[in-house]
């Protein structure tokens, strides 16, 4: 009898353990603070029903010295909008002052990193974009085609949040350019983007990016892209401040038109400011 009483007592001490928990799939979130690392798209998508207004600047080279106030005199800007249609699907577009370029993209998460009932070690997203450069024709007398203005990017984003503070992603990419400057340059350019994030505090993260282009595709003085920056989150805004050798903020630019050399101080200071608006409120599931 004593045994029975003891047994009952033990049971009473933890009532919750009597209930078998329903298995839940927990999707890993906040691998990166926003859907951009610096220039590259991060594996994050925009939450459904959320409109993200992005204002991005890249100033001139800091090696311009005091005469240019270290590049602040010259700025390129991209204004963009991102919208989350579902958990997995994001669309967006923007306009860059550099080469007067319009761009539109679609990003779809095929796999989402998760734990619990469904365990998935990585996130895998597909990204596709089109860019239209609208500068006046450099030689209006020759026969020019609209298609010469078009650029396409195809990208896979494979990433993982390894821990609360460390996330890493790889972005194998192909950029197709309908028109290239010389025969030596390839129309299809293959490269690999690598990006990592280290979370320093709850609201500040350090980001790094390296964009490697396979050899013999682009003419000199092409440079691989290197960027480093901080994410600072303040409630509804995320400020991304960074140093990069890319002036362009879209794939076709920072993958294939990058000429800045870090060793010579060809570094742009820049920022992305993200402001989100909830267009459609989330429904609370039963």
């Amino acid at each position: 009898m004593i045994f029975v009483a003891e047994f009952a007592k033990a049971q009473e001490e933890d009532l919750l353990s009597m209930i078998e928990e329903d298995p839940v799939t927990e999707y890993v979130n906040a691998s990166f603070k926003t859907n951009r690392v610096i220039n590259l798209h991060s594996l994050e998508s925009t939450a459904p029903g959320v409109l993200d207004f992005k204002i991005s600047h890249r100033f001139g080279y800091i090696n311009g010295g005091f005469y240019d106030i270290f590049g602040l005199d010259g700025a390129t800007i991209r204004l963009g909008l991102d919208y989350g249609i579902t958990d997995r699907l994001t669309i967006g577009g923007g306009r860059s002052s550099l080469q007067k370029t319009y761009d539109g993209y679609i990003k779809y998460k095929l796999l989402r990193q998760s734990t619990g009932a469904v365990k998935m070690p990585i996130t895998l997203a597909f990204f596709g974009s089109t860019a239209i450069q609208t500068l006046k024709w450099s030689d209006p007398d020759r026969e020019n085609y609209f298609t010469s203005r078009l650029y396409y990017t195809f990208q896979c984003i494979i990433g993982r949040k390894f821990s609360e503070s460390f996330s890493l992603q790889l972005s194998p990419t192909m950029v197709h350019r309908n028109l290239v400057k010389t025969k030596l340059e390839k129309n299809d350019v293959f490269g690999l983007g690598t990006a990592a994030r280290i979370k320093l505090t709850k609201r500040v993260a350090l980001n790094g990016e390296y964009i490697y282009i396979l050899p013999d595709q682009l003419a000199s003085p092409y440079q691989n892209g290197i960027s480093i920056g901080f994410d600072i989150e303040t409630g509804g805004h995320v400020f991304q401040l960074h140093f990069t050798n890319s002036a362009s903020m879209i794939e076709k630019g920072f993958f294939t038109e990058n000429t800045g050399d870090w060793t010579k101080g060809d570094i742009h200071f820049g920022f992305n400011v993200s402001r989100v608006f909830t267009v459609k409120k989330q429904k609370i599931a039963e």
């Binding site: 009597m18 839940v24 906040a30 939450a47 959320v50 909830t278 989330q282 609370i284 599931a285």
Partner: peptide, 27 residues
């Protein structure tokens, strides 16, 4: 879980199970 023999009561809730109207707030 409520134990009718003793009146003991326990509750448990997953923090990630809380849903907000704004996704960013939830994050």
């Amino acid at each position: 879980v409520l134990d009718a023999a003793t009146g003991k009561m326990e509750w448990s809730v997953l923090i990630k199970g809380f849903q907000f109207e704004k996704a960013l707030m939830q994050e």
